[in-house]
Amino acid sequence: MQVRERIEKLSNDLTSTERKLSTALLLDYPFAGLEPIQELAKATNTSPPSVSRFVTKLGFQGFQDFQRHLIGELKQGQRSPVELQASSAPIHGAFLESFLERACAVVKDATKAVSEAQFERIADILADEKRSIYVIGGRMSDPLAQHLSRHLRQIRAKVFHLPADPEVWPEYLLRMRARDVLFVVDFRRYQDSLSALAQKATQARHVQVVLMTDEWLSPISAHASEVLAAPIDSSTLWDSYTGALALLEALLTRIADDDWDQTKSRIEEWDSVRLDFGDNQDD
């Protein structure tokens, strides 16, 4: 269990001092916990013994054990396919059937990663036509961002997919207005450029960042108001995006169905101006 999950599990049983520590740790997770114990105590106006008692309450043998756990989480977030293959579980029996069973398990786990309340909040945010929606993903995850943006723009207006070239991003940043939404998809082997974009968007343009990431949490989570932590581990050399895709499709269907008359009208208008590049039967 991650440190973040341990803190959230005990949130109702924390003292005022422990709440100060938990807030500081979660605001700059996991880096706040990697500071020396004296620095963490000073930053929270507590004491080193209070910090030690807090991490013991979380189930660790001491502050060093607590920090080793955080370092392990960081390493998990940077594992490459080569490293994943070395610790993968062999597939036995019929390969395709066994592989798809693992994919189904990832999709099933996605239902545990996001509460119904959070799902509804994010659906409402993406459906709010007073907001412009900007979408971008990482090197491997951008197809998920494209899937979201291409479907969402058929449901509502003012949906923009940012290109991969950072030299073009200032144009989009300048378009952003307060309360607009930057939806970022960033899975492990996280991209520093996306984190810098999210920071600039929140600090300079006052937009709301919605992050889709994995259980180890992209650094962008420090700038996000909503975090969708989708399961990706299929015990193979490749991370699986099947759970993340299912979550996106659930959001899109929820938004489209919520005001079907408007969605239907938008799709019909969209199709009426779509350019037809089909074969000319009169040739």
Rank of each mutant, 00 (worst) to 15 (best):
E5N: 13
E5R: 10
R6C: 08
E8H: 07
K9G: 05
K9W: 07
K9S: 10
N12E: 13
D13I: 01
L14K: 06
T15D: 07
T15H: 05
L21S: 02
D28M: 06
F31N: 14
A32V: 13
E35F: 09
E39A: 10
A41G: 08
A41K: 03
A43L: 10
T44I: 09
S47W: 02
P49A: 03
P49M: 05
S50E: 03
R53Q: 08
F54Y: 10
V55A: 07
T56L: 12
G59H: 05
F60I: 01
G62V: 01
Q64I: 09
Q67F: 03
Q67E: 04
R68E: 14
H69P: 00
L70R: 07
L70P: 00
I71F: 04
I71S: 14
E73I: 06
Q76F: 05
S80H: 12
V82Q: 14
E83Y: 08
E83R: 12
A86K: 10
S87F: 09
S87D: 13
S88Q: 04
S88L: 04
S88M: 02
I91N: 09
G93P: 03
F95Q: 14
L96S: 10
L100R: 11
L100V: 06
L100H: 08
L100K: 10
R102M: 01
R102K: 09
R102C: 04
C104H: 10
V106Y: 03
V107Q: 08
A110N: 09
K112Q: 15
K112M: 15
K112L: 15
A113Q: 05
V114W: 00
E120Q: 14
R121Q: 12
I122N: 00
L126C: 04
L126A: 03
A127H: 04
K130V: 05
R131Q: 09
R139W: 07
D142Q: 11
